[in-house]
Structures are given as C-alpha cells and as structure tokens.
Amino acid sequence: LPLEERVTHFRDMLLERGVSAFSTWEKELHKIVFDPRYLLLNSEERKQIFEQFVKTR
C-alpha cells in the first residue's frame, strides 16, 4: 500500500479505537497495539501520525 493510504488506515484506526486527543502515546497504545492496522507504519511514522492526530482533534 502507498504511504498515504497506510496513514489513512492508521488515522481511521485511531478514531475507531477512541484514542483521546488529550492523552499521551504511551497511555493510548494499549487501545491500538493489537489492531492489524497498527503495523502498517513503522514506529517513527506511528508516533508522528499520532502527534498530528491529537493536535487536529
């Protein structure tokens, strides 16, 4: 999958899993780590997309 598509899937997962915009990566990790979409991005990309996600929520 192209990166753009993987990012979209990852963001959808964050929304569906009820990730809080007022929380930290560490506190929200347990909600998403077992979702197959979690593995679409490498660890650096995951954290970066998470940070963007919480800023725009």
Rank of each mutant, 00 (worst) to 15 (best):
L1V: 08
L1R: 11
L1F: 15
L1W: 03
L1A: 09
P2G: 15
P2N: 15
P2A: 15
P2D: 15
P2R: 15
P2H: 15
L3P: 11
L3Q: 15
L3C: 01
L3D: 12
L3E: 14
L3I: 15
L3N: 13
L3M: 15
L3R: 15
L3W: 12
E4F: 09
E4D: 15
E4N: 14
E4T: 04
E4L: 11
E4R: 01
E4W: 06
E4C: 07
E5L: 05
E5D: 08
E5G: 11
E5A: 02
E5R: 13
E5S: 08
E5F: 07
R6C: 02
R6N: 07
R6T: 02
R6Y: 10
R6K: 07
V7I: 14
V7K: 15
V7L: 12
T8N: 10
T8G: 09
T8Y: 05
T8S: 11
T8E: 07
T8R: 04
H9V: 10
H9S: 12
H9W: 09
F10G: 03
F10Y: 05
F10C: 00
F10N: 10
F10L: 03
F10V: 00
F10K: 01
R11W: 09
R11V: 04
R11C: 06
R11A: 06
R11H: 11
D12G: 08
D12M: 14
D12V: 04
D12C: 05
D12W: 12
M13I: 04
M13E: 05
M13T: 02
M13N: 04
M13C: 02
M13V: 09
M13H: 02
L14A: 03
L14F: 01
L15N: 11
L15S: 13
L15V: 11
L15G: 10
E16F: 05
E16M: 07
E16R: 00
E16V: 04
R17G: 00
R17S: 07
R17M: 10
R17C: 11
R17N: 11
R17W: 02
R17V: 07
R17H: 13
G18A: 05
G18L: 06
G18M: 00
G18P: 12
G18H: 08
G18V: 04
G18W: 02
V19R: 00
S20P: 06
S20C: 11
S20R: 00
S20T: 08
S20N: 15
S20A: 08
S20F: 06
A21L: 05
A21Q: 10
A21Y: 07
A21P: 12
A21C: 11
A21F: 05
A21K: 10
A21S: 09
A21V: 11
F22A: 13
F22G: 13
F22P: 07
F22M: 07
F22L: 12
F22D: 15
S23T: 12
S23P: 13
T24E: 00
T24M: 05
T24P: 05
T24R: 03
W25K: 04
W25E: 03
W25N: 05
E26H: 15
E26T: 06
E26A: 04
E26K: 00
E26S: 04
E26R: 01
E26W: 01
E26C: 14
K27N: 08
K27P: 04
K27G: 09
K27W: 02
K27C: 13
K27T: 03
K27Q: 14
K27L: 04
E28L: 07
E28F: 02
L29M: 15
L29V: 11
L29P: 03
H30I: 07
H30D: 10
H30M: 06
H30P: 14
H30E: 10
H30F: 00
H30W: 12
K31F: 05
K31S: 02
K31G: 04
K31P: 03
K31T: 02
I32D: 01
I32Q: 04
I32N: 05
I32S: 00
I32W: 06
I32T: 01
I32Y: 13
V33R: 14
V33M: 10
V33H: 14
V33Y: 12
V33F: 06
V33A: 12
V33E: 12
V33G: 02
V33K: 13
V33T: 08
V33N: 09
V33C: 06
F34H: 14
F34E: 15
F34W: 09
F34P: 06
F34L: 13
D35R: 07
D35W: 01
D35Y: 03
D35V: 01
D35M: 03
D35S: 00
P36H: 08
P36Y: 03
P36R: 06
P36K: 13
P36E: 08
P36L: 03
R37K: 02
R37V: 05
R37C: 02
R37D: 01
R37T: 14
R37Q: 01
R37H: 00
Y38L: 06
Y38N: 06
Y38C: 00
Y38P: 04
Y38E: 00
Y38A: 01
Y38D: 01
Y38I: 04
L39G: 15
L40N: 13
L40P: 03
L40Y: 09
L40K: 00
L41C: 02
L41Y: 02
L41G: 05
L41W: 01
L41S: 03
L41V: 10
L41T: 05
L41E: 02
L41A: 03
L41K: 00
L41P: 00
N42C: 07
N42I: 03
N42A: 05
N42M: 03
N42V: 00
S43R: 11
S43G: 13
E44W: 11
E44S: 11
E44H: 08
E44A: 13
E44L: 11
E44T: 12
E44V: 11
E44F: 11
E45L: 12
E45Q: 13
E45F: 04
E45A: 01
E45N: 14
E45P: 02
R46Q: 06
R46T: 01
R46I: 00
R46M: 03
R46H: 05
R46L: 03
R46Y: 11
R46N: 07
K47Q: 14
K47D: 02
K47A: 08
K47G: 09
K47S: 04
K47C: 11
Q48G: 10
Q48I: 11
Q48S: 12
Q48W: 12
Q48C: 10
Q48P: 05
Q48H: 14
I49S: 03
I49T: 14
I49H: 11
I49C: 10
I49R: 02
I49G: 04
I49L: 13
F50S: 01
F50A: 01
F50P: 00
F50Y: 14
F50T: 00
E51P: 00
E51R: 05
E51I: 04
E51S: 10
E51Y: 08
E51L: 06
Q52E: 14
Q52G: 07
Q52P: 04
F53L: 02
F53D: 00
F53Y: 14
F53R: 01
F53V: 02
V54H: 04
V54S: 11
V54W: 04
V54L: 06
V54Q: 07
K55R: 10
K55Y: 03
K55F: 05
K55H: 11
K55C: 08
K55N: 10
K55P: 00
K55G: 10
K55E: 14
K55W: 06
T56R: 07
T56Q: 13
T56M: 06
T56L: 09
T56E: 15
T56K: 12
T56W: 07
